[in-house]
Design a protein around this nucleic acid. Structure first.
Length: 618
RNA sequence: GCCCCGGUAGCUUAGCCCGGUAUAGCGGCGGCCUUGUAAGCCGCAGGCCGCGGGUUCGAAUCCCGCCCGGGGCUCCA
């Protein structure tokens, strides 16, 4: 819909003759309106109730801005080359008039379907002329897909499923001893994601120079200084290695897709998330909110035999984009641009899908474990349709048994989404808010939508079942979980830290005077050849100050280096994890750090070894 | 969209009620100290007190408008 609005001294029109088969009855003669808003209105193809509502609020807005509630809605076919049918246009205009009246505006009309003589006088202030282009899609408030609107209509039934297979309605489950699960249930059933306090990780991510807000970007698009980039990059690399070990084939796909692409358009409407839209000439592209599109479009073109199944495609998206509501965005918990490992598995049938899903469940538990999050840190939610549950009860119970703790169940009477089952691991933070980490879904719809097929043993083309899994969840969110966990430990009286393999500095060397700086540099280089990140605090500060700074930076191993160390080669190592000072040789230290990082990727810290050479990012 | 709170140095912040152009810490810079396991000492620089207007002899402070941020409501994988 297009609307050209004028704040006028007066408008006069006179119906001259009817134009087509669709028209409204009209009195002949001249009509005059003083001091009204004239809204020349064009109804376009695709306009619906949403468009009308937006138009009403635009009109209302304008009317209150200029302090005039008298509006003349004037049908005007010349603002678009993509007109709705006359029947549709007239109906839409009628709804528009009614809604404007209901909003308290004084609405005047001119008849649809007539050639009219028109004269007007527009007031001479800057707001007197306004144009609005309103579409159900990209512009303005953004694209709100049908799935999102449908969500509120879904009826959910909530249960707790125990590892022994008991399905208990949530209200009669005894939560004593299951604090995290209680928090998850409360959080999920309330469906509220708004943030009321600032969670502790926000302060930590800034102070530790891990991540920060970028005022020059949109909300929820973060910047990552050197230490944060290292941590994030190591986790990315680790997850990728684990997925490749599991059998994922790593690929890369574009970040933006044509909004009018036939498969994507209908998928957009089935996926409950808001999109960023990029305009380029006359085309509109949405930024991907998951890796699905790229992988599905690729799978569509692949030649797949039943012998290849399950086919596992993997991509780590940097980034995926979702225009989450501003009130939900805080720190690293929920972002508008995030890094998402996403592995799809194409499976022959439901039987194979179930087997594969169990493998991926174990993969997810293993990945989180490697990152430093155990089952004590998260709770499982599992969602499915009643049909699926009734015919696959053993499988569902098997998932919960593998998890080993009762899980929250959301059951739907009907299938609203493209999946029949979905599970996630939810991290519970210090404010008792939940957010999903690992997840997997059993998708029974998209293979057909995207034309993805495999050939079975009889030569027939079939649509596979697709599993969608993120074994860790968004990488940023993993960092959030690690920081929140560290804070929890701190609150309970422990020393907060990151796992050794993720600590930007693993070993900090503190020379007692500048005479020992060179020795420290040498030792530092030796440690580096053993793939250990070490640095030297050569600043002109006291030893006490440097120890304190190393502690507030969460450095796992700190060595004060002086005459004794130079002579004996034995160190008093301040070990953060055990909160004690341990006597160790270089070899013992190397062995300990290496074993704590075993099986994990290694990367150098891209900051100068000498702390005196390091700028602060804050 | 509506409601509440906020915006003072790179960061954290005092002052605002009750008008007299601003406080401190961290960080930065310079100097002294050459250091043994959680903050050594001294000094210096750094401020359109969010923006615009008003009241006043005089505004960070009072009034009006706006902008930005946070939160609430609403909405919501």
């Amino acid at each position: 819909m297009k609307m050209l609005m004028f704040h006028t001294d007066f408008v006069e029109y006179e119906p001259v003759e009817r134009e087509g088969r669709v028209f409204e009855e009209a009195e002949t003669g001249r009509r005059r309106f003083e001091d009204v808003i004239l809204a020349l209105t064009t109804v376009e193809e695709g306009d619906d109730e949403t468009t009308v509502n937006k138009a009403v609020s635009e009109l209302k807005d304008y009317s209150s801005k200029i302090g005039n509630r008298r509006v003349l809605i004037y049908p005007y076919a010349h603002l678009s080359n993509n007109l709705a049918t006359p029947e549709k246009a007239l109906e839409t205009l009628r709804i528009l008039r009614e809604k404007c009246r209901a909003e308290g505006m004084e609405v005047y009309t001119s008849p649809f379907g007539w050639t009219k003589a028109l004269s007007l006088s527009v007031k001479g202030h800057p707001l007197a002329e306004q144009f609005r282009s309103i579409s159900p899609g990209a512009t303005g408030a953004g694209y709100v897909p049908k799935a999102l609107m449908m969500e509120e209509k879904i009826r959910s039934f909530w249960y707790i499923l125990t590892p022994s297979g008991e399905l208990v309605p949530v209200e009669s489950f005894d939560f004593s001893g299951y604090d995290g699960l209680r928090a998850l249930a409360t959080y999920e059933m309330a469906k509220s994601r708004a943030v009321s306090e600032i969670p502790p990780h926000v302060d930590l991510m800034k102070r530790l120079e891990i991540a920060d807000y970028e005022p020059g970007s949109d909300l929820g698009n973060m910047r990552w200084p050197a230490k944060g980039r290292l941590i994030k990059s190591l986790i990315e690399q680790y997850v990728t290695e684990k997925v490749i070990e599991y059998g994922g084939m790593e690929i890369e796909t574009p970040i933006m897709y044509d909004i009018r692409h036939s498969c994507l358009e209908s998928y957009l409407n089935r996926f409950p998330a808001r999109q960023y839209v990029v305009k380029s000439d006359d085309r509109e592209f949405f930024l991907r909110f998951a890796a699905c599109f790229g992988q599905f479009l690729m799978a569509h073109d692949m030649q797949i035999s039943y012998r290849h199944l399950p086919v596992r495609l993997y991509e780590l998206t940097r980034y995926s984009f979702r225009r989450e509501k501003s009130g939900e965005l805080v720190g690293l918990k929920r972002l508008r641009a995030f890094t998402m490992p996403d592995v799809h598995a194409l499976c022959a049938d439901i039987q194979q899908a179930k087997e594969e899903a169990l493998r991926r469940f174990d993969l997810s538990v293993g990945v989180l474990e490697g990152i430093g999050l155990t089952k004590d840190d998260y709770e499982m939610a599992i969602r499915f349709t009643r049909d699926f549950y009734e015919s696959n009860r053993d499988f569902v119970v098997d998932l919960v048994r593998r998890f080993g703790k009762p899980a929250l169940v959301e059951m739907w009477e009907e299938r609203f989404f493209y999946f029949v089952l979905k599970w996630e691991f939810n991290f519970i933070d210090n404010l008792r808010k939940a957010s999903a980490l690992s997840t997997d879904q059993i998708d029974v719809e998209n293979a057909e939508r995207y034309g993805i097929t495999y050939v079975d043993q009889f030569g027939n083309k079939r649509h596979p079942i697709i599993l969608h899994c993120s074994p860790s969840g968004a990488i940023e969110r993993v960092v959030y979980a690690l920081l929140e966990k560290a804070y929890r430990i701190y609150k309970e009286g422990g020393k907060p830290m990151l796992p050794v393999w993720l600590s930007p500095t693993q070993v900090r060397l503190i020379p007692v005077s500048d005479k020992f700086v060179e020795d420290c540099i040498l030792l530092c280089e030796k440690l580096e050849t053993e793939r250990i990140r070490a640095d030297v605090d050569d600043r002109l500060e006291t030893v006490e100050k440097k120890v304190r700074d190393a502690e507030t930076e969460w450095v796992p191993y700190v060595i004060v280096f002086g005459k004794k160390e130079k002579e004996s080669n034995v160190f008093q190592v301040r070990d953060r994890a055990s909160n004690s000072i341990r006597q160790m040789t270089v070899e013992e230290l190397v062995y300990e750090v290496s074993s704590k990082s075993a099986g994990k990727p290694y990367k150098k810290l891209s900051l100068p070894k000498r702390l005196s050479q390091r700028p602060s990012f804050r």
